[in-house]
Design a binder for these strands. Structure first.
Lengths: 193, 193
DNA sequence: GTGGTACGATACCGATCTGTATTGTACTTT
DNA sequence: AAAGTACAATACAGATCGGTATCGTACCAC
């Protein structure tokens, strides 16, 4: 055992990711995930205790995916935090310009699961707190006058971009100007670019 | 007739607003709306053809409410568009600091209804387009170098603030720094404040 | 007062939801 | 070769969903 069990699990997570991200969490039933994944329904419940469990597992995967993307965006500018911050928002602008962009799994999760005690809400909040902390550390390294303030402001831009991308579909959204906005906020915080 | 019929309708819209806004659109069933409104279920369907119809009607009401709020925010600074823009984001910061803030009905609607042909999605997009147009007109009147760019950037801040407010519940969210961010974006666009 | 109507109450319909029970089979480990 | 297991397939349970049908009643205009 140990390799076959992963195959079903990953097929389920793949299908869950596509469906939940594109169509919404509550809008997609477990039957749809089962059908798309090609596994049996009982197999889903052997790997995940409930639909909520599957949602949390998907968000954990999305979290890993996000940080991989983030690392790739900042990699070319090691030791130059101000450039790294700009690079994140340049990459984000490219991401959001893709017509097949469905926003941010965590923003969407926050919209659908309002109860702060719900595990899906908690997962979304934790992710955003981690992003906030990371941006804050980069802002501090870049010499921002108030790193926490700058990090918060950048986070507003980021989440606003995700929202707009999901709303606008294929037409050009306000997110196309997100990189210049980030640069302006950096400049206002005394960060030389 | 004409006054009693409105009473039921408005009770329904009030209950719908509270429930849909606080708990989500798909998470709240028509039975919950009926129970909270205190009217009979058939009365709901005599006023609204379907749940989607009720959702759209609620969003129309939320749209009116938004523009009333907007007008009140900018009213003290007529003929001073740059001050009006700042005032909108100052009012927004107050709104988002309220622990009982559940974000933006239209942002939430965009997250839950992804299909661009769905009437709820359309209503959300139309609202955001109207806000964008209004911000653009104000940015132009304020003398921004690129009014459309500034409007888009401000819209990103605004929607990001709504998202964060819904995620953070009662603890201080990144949205507390939204007003300074708006001021920085205005300054970067050559708008004197 | 009489007819029309907006409403409350309740029971109901078919569909869909999450989650389970059952049975048979292919593969893996020892 | 035997035992254990991860799986497919299917049927099903119980709840909830959006929406309807029915009947009784209070109120309204004429």
């Amino acid at each position: 055992m140990g390799h076959k069990v992963r195959a079903s699990r990953e097929k389920l997570l793949k299908a869950a990711g596509e469906l939940f991200f594109c169509e919404g969490y509550r809008a997609v039933g477990v039957d749809a995930v089962v059908e798309r994944s090609g596994v049996a329904k009982m197999t889903l419940y052997r790997h995940f205790a409930s639909k909520d469990d599957l949602l949390v597992a998907y968000l954990q995967e999305a979290d890993r995916h996000f940080w991989n993307w983030f690392a790739a965006a900042v990699a070319p500018y090691a030791e130059a935090p101000q450039r790294q911050l700009l690079a994140v928002f340049a990459a984000l602008a490219r991401l959001l310009a893709d017509p097949s962009c469905y926003g941010c799994p965590f923003v969407n999760a926050g919209a659908e699961f309002v109860d702060g005690e719900h595990p899906v809400h908690k997962a979304a909040l934790e992710h955003k707190l981690a992003v906030r902390a990371r941006l804050c550390a980069m802002a501090e390294a870049a010499g921002a006058q108030a790193p926490e303030v700058l990090a918060d402001q950048l986070l507003l831009l980021m989440d606003g971009g995700y929202v707009q991308a999901r709303l606008y579909g294929s037409r050009p959204s306000p997110a196309q100007h997100i990189a210049e906005a980030a640069a302006a906020l950096l400049a206002a915080q005394g960060v030389k670019t």
